[in-house]
């Protein structure tokens, strides 16, 4: 299956679709196949490894660093990635993404953006500015960043979705903040996506939010998979267990990402990086076997003991 041609095709929905992860052929013919997951509200398949841009893509007008970001994007697309996530809060990340997309000849990106302003009235103008920075005809996904003015923005986003100006709507949080309100909104609103922090150490969302997302048919984007690099730095000197090879994890980053992706409610993880070798390593985590529940417990226990 070529994910470039499945963007609007409805396939299985709900729990059946979630359980039935499929594979997609990446752009590069020789590359292995990357795991895809369905977006529950439509069944559209999307590669399970995305690309975050927090800090890493905020490089201003630096021509060297802009081209490095474009190289990261090129490697990401080449190895089968598709979702790139950003926000107006991320400094120059949006125009840097636009630079990369233009340089790469408009690759088939799944554009995930956010609206981040305390005024509902300012939302449309900010989103239009974001769209111009990216240079895309419309965003695939627009999320309310950190629940800021969420009632006003969700109203706007629903209207935009009905008018075909955005394909999916969602909300975000990070680092475990405002989970009570997040849950309340998930229960009361119709959302295509939710974005939250989840990793092998920060597992609170396993209790309520991830099961709720499954029940409510919402796709889940996982941010801060490495705790902004803190987790991988902490594990750097530790030995990867021999049994990590059973799930095809060759590095700690892949170990962590495979743990995240193996949760049945998770749709896409969005690690951020400035390095081409790291983006390859990250995408490779979405290739090959994922841990089962018993292995997940073993992985979490192993990291906890370190």
């Amino acid at each position: 299956m070529d994910f470039r041609h499945t963007t609007r095709r409805a396939v299985l929905a709900g729990g059946v679709a979630l359980a039935a992860s499929t594979v997609a052929r990446p752009l590069h013919a020789q590359s292995p196949q990357v795991l895809t997951r369905p977006i529950p509200s439509t069944g559209e398949q999307i590669p399970a490894m995305g690309l975050g841009t927090w800090i890493t893509f905020n490089v201003g007008n630096d021509p060297v660093l802009r081209d490095e970001c474009a190289a990261v994007m090129a490697a990401f697309f080449e190895h089968g990635g598709r979702m790139i996530d950003s926000s107006p809060m991320y400094g120059s990340s949006q125009p840097v993404i636009g630079h990369g997309l233009q340089k790469l000849g408009a690759p088939p990106v799944f554009s995930a953006e956010k609206v981040w302003t305390s005024s509902g009235e300012d939302g449309p103008e900010q989103m239009e500015q974001s769209r111009r920075y990216w240079g895309v005809p419309r965003f695939d996904l627009m999320q309310v960043h950190n629940l800021l003015a969420w009632q006003d923005h969700l109203k706007t986003l629903r209207a935009m979705k009905e008018a075909g100006q955005v394909r999916y709507v969602g909300i975000t949080t990070s680092e475990g903040r405002r989970h009570d309100l997040f849950e309340e909104i998930m229960r009361s609103e119709t959302l295509d996506f939710v974005q939250l922090t989840y990793n092998i150490v920060d597992r609170e969302v396993e209790q309520r939010l991830l099961p709720l997302a499954r029940d409510r048919g919402m796709a889940v984007i996982v941010n801060r998979p490495f705790q902004q690099g803190y987790l991988t730095r902490q594990l750097e000197g530790e030995k990867l267990p021999d049994w990590a090879g059973e799930i095809g994890a060759n590095t700690w980053a892949q170990f962590i990402l495979k743990f995240i992706l193996s949760h049945p409610a998770v749709t896409v993880a969005i690690p951020a990086t400035t390095r081409v070798d790291h983006v390859r390593e990250n995408v490779a985590a979405a290739i090959g076997p994922l841990p089962d529940e018993a292995m997940r417990q073993r992985m979490a226990a192993y990291v906890e003991e370190l």
């Binding site: 490089v59 201003g60 630096d62 809060m89 991320y90």
Partner: peptide
């Protein structure tokens, strides 16, 4: 933004050290 107490100093850092020093 709420729950200010849950934010760390690094949460407000928007850029990497390399990007910052390359500005100069």
């Amino acid at each position: 933004m709420s729950e200010w107490w849950s934010y760390r100093l690094s949460d407000f850092l928007l850029f990497s050290p390399r990007t910052y020093w390359r500005l100069f």
